[in-house]
Design a protein around this nucleic acid. Sequence first.
DNA 1: TTGTCTCCCGTCGGGAGACAA
DNA 2: TTGTCTCCCGACGGGAGACAA
Lengths: 579, 579
Amino acid sequence: MADGAGDDLFKELWRLCAGPLMDVPCVQDRVFYFPQGHIELLPEPTEQELRQMKNQKSPKYDLPSKILCRVIDVKCLAEMETDEVYARITLQPSSDNDPLDPNPICSEKPKQKFYSFCKTLSTSDTSTHGGFSVLRKHANECLPQLDMTMENPTQELVAKDIHGVEWKFKHIYRGHPKRHLLTTGWSAFVAAKKLVVGDSFVFLRGENGQLRVGIRRLNPPQSPTPSSVVSTQNMRLGVIVTASHSVMTSTMFVVYYKPRTSQFIVSLNKYIDTMNNDFKIGMRFKMRHEGEDPLDKRFCGTIVGVGDESREWPNSQWRSLKVQWDEPATMQRPDRVSCWEIEPLVTSPLNMIQPMAKGKRSRHAEASSSAASGSKESQVATIWHPPHLNGNGNSSQDLKNNKAVVPAGPAGEGPACDHNEDGKKGMDCWLFGVNLTSSYSNVVTPLEKELWCEASTILHCGPKESIIVGACEIEKVQSLNNHSLSNKQGHVPSMRTRTKVKMEGVAVGRAIDLTTLNGYDELIVELEKMFDIEGEIISQKKWAVTFTDEENDLMLLDDDLWQDFCKMVKRIFICSKED
Amino acid sequence: MADGAGDDLFKELWRLCAGPLMDVPCVQDRVFYFPQGHIELLPEPTEQELRQMKNQKSPKYDLPSKILCRVIDVKCLAEMETDEVYARITLQPSSDNDPLDPNPICSEKPKQKFYSFCKTLSTSDTSTHGGFSVLRKHANECLPQLDMTMENPTQELVAKDIHGVEWKFKHIYRGHPKRHLLTTGWSAFVAAKKLVVGDSFVFLRGENGQLRVGIRRLNPPQSPTPSSVVSTQNMRLGVIVTASHSVMTSTMFVVYYKPRTSQFIVSLNKYIDTMNNDFKIGMRFKMRHEGEDPLDKRFCGTIVGVGDESREWPNSQWRSLKVQWDEPATMQRPDRVSCWEIEPLVTSPLNMIQPMAKGKRSRHAEASSSAASGSKESQVATIWHPPHLNGNGNSSQDLKNNKAVVPAGPAGEGPACDHNEDGKKGMDCWLFGVNLTSSYSNVVTPLEKELWCEASTILHCGPKESIIVGACEIEKVQSLNNHSLSNKQGHVPSMRTRTKVKMEGVAVGRAIDLTTLNGYDELIVELEKMFDIEGEIISQKKWAVTFTDEENDLMLLDDDLWQDFCKMVKRIFICSKED
DNA sequence: TTGTCTCCCGTCGGGAGACAA
DNA sequence: TTGTCTCCCGACGGGAGACAA
């Protein structure tokens, strides 16, 4: 430690514990911060809190959905209780004259070589009887040499964990056939860290011989338990107001970032790269996930919707892509992702052009080109073809929004800073929709007022010099688009408008636009038409209509208020009465 | 359980675990909420965070130091991890015309008698060898009778803890001389609850024979560990902005309150009582503390300073008294207290009458002349004399601020409401140092008014009239909530107005509108209809009806008041009786 | 009356080789 | 090569009366 090598080792251990998907920015990098994603990580409000939030007027905040920041400081930390790694990142909102150049490649070259392994714990490893079985390869590469001239060579390993706490392990080479084991000390470690089968043990040796141990859990704690200190409402407001305040005053703020959980801080480089892709409905993609050693195993899926995740953040890129996964998986996967989490699945230029029309073929082509998981992919049974997704051009809504989300900027440059002539009007400090500085004194013409109000509902931003002014202008236009759209349609414009319908015994699914219907009666008429079973549903003899809701529970139609139903329905099923 | 006694027992257990100093307001009470005290409970910022907060311009907030609120809801809860009891209190800032009458005495009379004991654990009680020694008196009063004709009479006690988890204990009367012991099951309880010498064991028996167990720790966790979810800065801002917003919009907000830790919610009655005293430097006082059975044992001390605890809250009454304690003590005691935590020390009736001035003054005369600590008082080094406490001058600001919080009450109720000519101006909305109301009053033209309306809908803080009538409006909204919610606040898109019902063996769920029902009887009839099992539930032979509440606990139907049930039910399950 | 000690004995679990996937 | 099983034996701890404060 005194030689500074300990610091290197700590960082390396932190990286190993964070896992292969770890993505933490470097100091001085520019990043986009997505408050929406930050809020997502707060404890879930209880039912009761949710009810109260409904009764309560929520303060409107006009924080942009993404905030360009410079990384001032990154501190790698780990939770005392669980050893879960996280980073305390200090961000400073960028100013206008901060160009959108990509970040220089930052690589802190460690001074020494590392030897490390990571093993998923078996049942035996975690059992109370006996110790930890070190794979021969791992032992050879990473453990200090034993004196093999001995009958049962043994040594004591002393290693520090991420908090600097020392753990001692007896390392022995014994048994028939011979193998490496960690015995004494191991079970105490397992108990203290509360390890279970499937968790991983991380071992690290530095060139200087110092040892480190760490863990990576199979299931990192998802949503933290609600605190009994402050309400979730408090936390949400806190996050937003902290960010607002920092943007207004150009001062630093601190966020805690768990790279394993959710990537709400995105490096400018990654963002720019991502934005070169045109994410469209129907596009095929792959997404990395934390898994076993073969890192190239990825989940594949199809984009089935483009648009806002939440009404509160219009035109946000956060989880703006609704996706459908190819295969079921044991692990939970989100049904909405952000562009930077995925990569387009490119197989051949041909498929790029006609992805949907040749959907099945393309997948086979692609499968054959990727060795390991080809057969799995070909098992895909249900391929969903919502009518409005097949590229016949009737979904102007989606296209418009798509443009809003993935603006056509010059390649390599972010979309946010091109136009700014209006910015001269000056934009002062806005909070909760109120201009704290000028009290409307600048407003002149009615039109400008209208524009102004529009803009102010979208964001508040700093003085015109601020880089965000550029974004402002674009988003103002977007918001006007949105505005007119929502007037026309009366619902969130960018949400996928059709709802899937499947009928028992009918292989091909359908989709229906619930917004055009005024109640269950009309729905049933439409469903009957759709499947050519006029009168059969309404008679209640043969068919029952059920649906899955946002919690994926199968529910009977008709019990909920129509409005509620429209909000929560995911899929509709027509099944025979007996079931 | 079926008789609703479980709820009574829960509350009593909660009270016992909270300890004798427990002071939780009743629903409908008026209280003062001290945000400063609330913030005190947040995790301590780390060194690094502190440094950063210095470099950073902290947002200015002009939240009053105390806020008069009505208690809308009190939910008694306990932490999952530690069993520490706390209350989730929903507060609504009081409106201007809410008179400062004392709260009516609220006493929810329990329907039954309770038998309870609380014993501080000895070394033997917590040792791994052997069980818990029940004091003879406790056993006679609280434990179910043993059959004393037996040689070593024994029975199994089954008791629920505060989470409803069942614990089993073998109760035996044995040894020479004979004594009552809890053996089997006790050590598991000690281990699970992590009890140590000095912690207390709470045992409760209801008239109906139901048993409850609980704990009260010697050292309740002081400052919570800093969360790795949001920064302390976030939390602080969150608390303040939540309160600000609620004051501005007259809407409810939620605070978590740990009566054992810090009393930042003070009943109006207690406050009024307290304010009848004139707290002066040199005054002697006593303070209750959680301790052994002799409840009258108190710490005594002397006031050595009067004034603000923190610059950020000028003229706040929170911890406005600096004190010096008479004797050293093992337990930590604050060096600053709030007036309502202490009582003037009265030694003899003689002193009471002494004619320094009329009424309350006498006490202080007596106090300052009390012998014991005279020399100590002279040690006082720093002395504050805020003008408004020694009565010689009124800093107009203070008065204004006070008025905003405790508006226009009848004179003589407390120091905060003596002058009120300014009060007619109505309540000002301040946020981050900006008077939002005054910007409103500058608005002249209709267009500007329109703009204001725009802003005010964003802010959800209407013109001053709406602030004043806020309370009524809110109640109206609440009464309408079920039906108008979807129109008003679309922020929580997925909430249902119906409650999900699932039945064992039936794949398809249903949903029911509880608001149309008037009690459990009607609910059961509806459920039976829904699943075509008329008469089968009410007969209680085949089916049991359970539900999950907002904490996701599975509960049996019928235990709670119907109104409570409707508030907290999440899903209803009909399952076969055997399960 | 009740807190502590010590003794008895059953259970748990660390650590070894056996065995098999 | 390595995961699981079983066996051995020592340590831990639940439960009893003894004893003393």
